[in-house]
Design a protein around this nucleic acid. Sequence first.
DNA 1: CAAAATCATGCACAAAAATGCAAAAACTTG
DNA 2: CAAGTTTTTGCATTTTTGTGCATGATTTTG
Lengths: 248, 248
Amino acid sequence: MLKRERQSFILREVNLHNRVLSVDLSQKMGVSEDTIRRDLNEMAKNHQLIKVHGGALSKSFHLSDSENLVYASSGKKTIAHKALSLIKNGMFILTTGGTTIIELAKSLPPELNATFITPSLPAAYEYIHHPYIDVIFTGDRISKSSKIAIGAETVAKIKDIRADLCFLGINAIDADVGITDNDWEVVQVKKAMIGSARQVVALTISEKLNSSQKIRVCGLDKVNVLITELDPGDTQLEPYRKTGMTVL
Amino acid sequence: MLKRERQSFILREVNLHNRVLSVDLSQKMGVSEDTIRRDLNEMAKNHQLIKVHGGALSKSFHLSDSENLVYASSGKKTIAHKALSLIKNGMFILTTGGTTIIELAKSLPPELNATFITPSLPAAYEYIHHPYIDVIFTGDRISKSSKIAIGAETVAKIKDIRADLCFLGINAIDADVGITDNDWEVVQVKKAMIGSARQVVALTISEKLNSSQKIRVCGLDKVNVLITELDPGDTQLEPYRKTGMTVL
DNA sequence: CAAAATCATGCACAAAAATGCAAAAACTTG
DNA sequence: CAAGTTTTTGCATTTTTGTGCATGATTTTG
């Protein structure tokens, strides 16, 4: 059994049962527990599941608000603040989900009047609490792990839209490889969003710069603006500035 | 049971009941009280709950000035509890939004495995946090006032469904007039939901009995079950029992 | 204040994880 | 396809983590 096969089996298993034990997996596939542990650690780093002592839990398992809160912190606030400058009244704006985008949603000024379109349930939930913003939620079936709507209908609906702006919360970005992610369905949705917007804005904390995942979302040529918590002149951003995109 | 699972269960339990006793938890999960104590201490350090002698309290219990809130929602908790008895594994369940339904969503047992279909954004947001439940959100444009999806597409989507159960959070009910509401668009959606379910369950606090609004949703002949916080034998419910519906 | 319940602490033991290392498998590349 | 390189895997060893139990301290309650 190849590593890839094994990992995709693990992913199926964990999403099906919501939890797996290293011992069980080791036995089921006839490899040592060490190997399973290494797989689980790798998959945890790719945000495919949550590693815990003794096994792993599905991403949809709700816990660690504290971790999320700590993790969000000031960097994401800085990013949100920079992103706000791009938003004008009357705009149609596509957004993904993700903690950075949620932070942005929470920072929207109360007098803003715009239409937000998103496949992310948590994002929609934030937007709906805003006094003026119109919210359009695309699609019906909602993926538990990513909490966004996925599938053909969502993609089709997004393709019917011509938005002014697309805010993309991203998982990994690299000057050569471009933007990558690790969930095929999510990538399909993101691709559709990129195709439907006049201007694409990528938001990310600097930690994710120069990293890459298994599935490609798009090349950097599609990205018009990159926003991180760093100073735009920071050397880490040099390779991205060179591609001609705006760096904020 | 893994440590994280246990803690997640505790969190759910404490948020649901506002307080937990170490002894109960220890028994429910078959671990020693020491372990529970250690969990509670750890969770307290992470600000997930408040540790007290003998158990723990919910954070929200302490934050919001309790008394009023708890009493106001205690009726709804009773209703939610009664409604739970109608839900079986594997069911397809349509629900509206509204505070009563949200209370129900929060009370769903963690091991439940069912599909919930709703046009309500807050309801979907609750369902998605549950470990097993599948969530389908109907429709795209979301009305700000009611926070539910409205319009032709939503109605069309609901009409394509054959659900086992429809939980209807209602605004006004009267033995003669039936169920009424005050938002035309919302009524259209509710009508579609009633038409798409094998069994219709109306949930309401007794306060709304014998009242009516401007727009009619349906007659009582369409309602199979009525749930209030009152005892089923209460005289206030007499007129409804007479129509032949089940009163819980 | 005294009995009962609850808690903190240290300890023991088992399960799981990290680490370093060598063998095996999978891939490059000429 | 064969030799060399990289990746993957299993094993032995050490460390860490999770759990229960005993003991004595502390808090609650009647």
